[in-house]
């Protein structure tokens, strides 16, 4: 049995744009490639995160208004960015699974879910810890906070739904539909501070304008955001590698069990035939 056929039913590569995606659909190729890439993602992720957080915690200046509480930003903002980016990746995998039947997209979506939920929980927890000294409340039903809470529930719903079926393919399909529908929450999160009057501050860093933040604060924020993003990718890669190997194990064990059952049935049939003769 070829390594690539031990994982899942063969999938006919689509024509057009999906063909390039399917070049990396072979689980054996994915394991080889991800094994090479993983150290180059995990190690810089660790170093950059530590550098950004130590810089932000010990060397970046305090805010003239918020004091040292602003240092929570170096954890909170990257977590918020990862919560949204993780869900966008989850939705992209779901789309790839539904449209192109990419064999690894389901597994990747399954593994992104818990990590994204962790990032969202971190965002909510650190936001609450920042909100208490600044706003005087652990929680307010502000549009930004509420839409992120909805995102957290969407992650939890995806985790529960994908694991609720006996047939993993049906669970993945239901989860993919939920992920795509839930993607509508992402622009709501992004623009909530513009569309509604919120206690949460508007965006400080935008793609179109210059950042309205002191560079001594921007650099550690940039480092911790980049480091945490690489860390997120490394964790998802490691989990997806584990999931691919576990699926291969299940397939191999099931194949072996079928072969053994077939041999036993053949031996019994032979004995019965011998007894009759």
């Amino acid at each position: 049995m070829d390594a690539s056929t031990a994982f899942a039913p063969p999938v006919k590569p689509p024509s057009g744009g999906g063909r390039n995606l399917h070049r990396f659909a072979n689980p054996g190729r994915f394991l080889r490639l991800s094994g090479r890439v993983l150290p180059f993602v995990a190690l810089p992720g660790l170093v950059l995160t530590l550098a950004g957080l130590v810089w932000g915690l010990l060397f970046a200046p305090a805010d003239w208004q918020q004091g040292d509480a602003v240092r929570i930003m170096y954890v909170h903002v990257p977590a918020a960015w990862l919560a949204s980016a993780g869900y966008a990746a989850l939705a992209a995998c779901s789309l790839s699974s539904l449209v192109w039947r990419h064999p690894l997209a389901d597994l990747a979506a399954l593994e992104i879910g818990p990590v994204g939920a962790g990032a969202t929980a971190l965002c909510l927890a650190t936001g609450s810890l920042w909100g208490k000294p600044m706003w005087g409340a652990w929680w307010v039903w502000d549009a930004r906070l509420t839409s992120v809470l909805v995102l957290f529930f969407l992650y939890l719903g995806h985790i529960a739904l994908t694991r609720a079926f006996d047939d993993p393919a049906r669970g993945a399909r239901a989860g993919a539909i939920l992920a795509l529908v839930g993607a509508v929450d992402l622009p709501i999160i992004k623009f909530s501070v513009d569309w509604w009057n919120t206690l949460h501050q508007p965006a400080t860093i935008t793609l179109t304008g210059a950042p309205t933040m002191y560079l001594g604060m921007l650099w550690p924020l940039f480092l911790s955001a980049l480091g945490m993003t690489l860390g997120f990718v490394a964790i998802v890669l490691a989990r997806t590698r584990a999931a691919v190997m576990e699926r291969r194990l299940r397939t191999l064990l099931a194949t072996r069990a079928r072969q053994e059952a077939g041999q036993e049935a053949g031996q019994e049939a032979g004995q019965e035939a011998g007894g009759i003769a």
Partner: peptide, 13 residues
């Protein structure tokens, strides 16, 4: 200032 909140945030992370 606000050391408890800062430590808690980094600790959760």
């Amino acid at each position: 200032t606000h050391l408890t909140y800062i430590i808690a945030a980094y600790g959760v992370f």
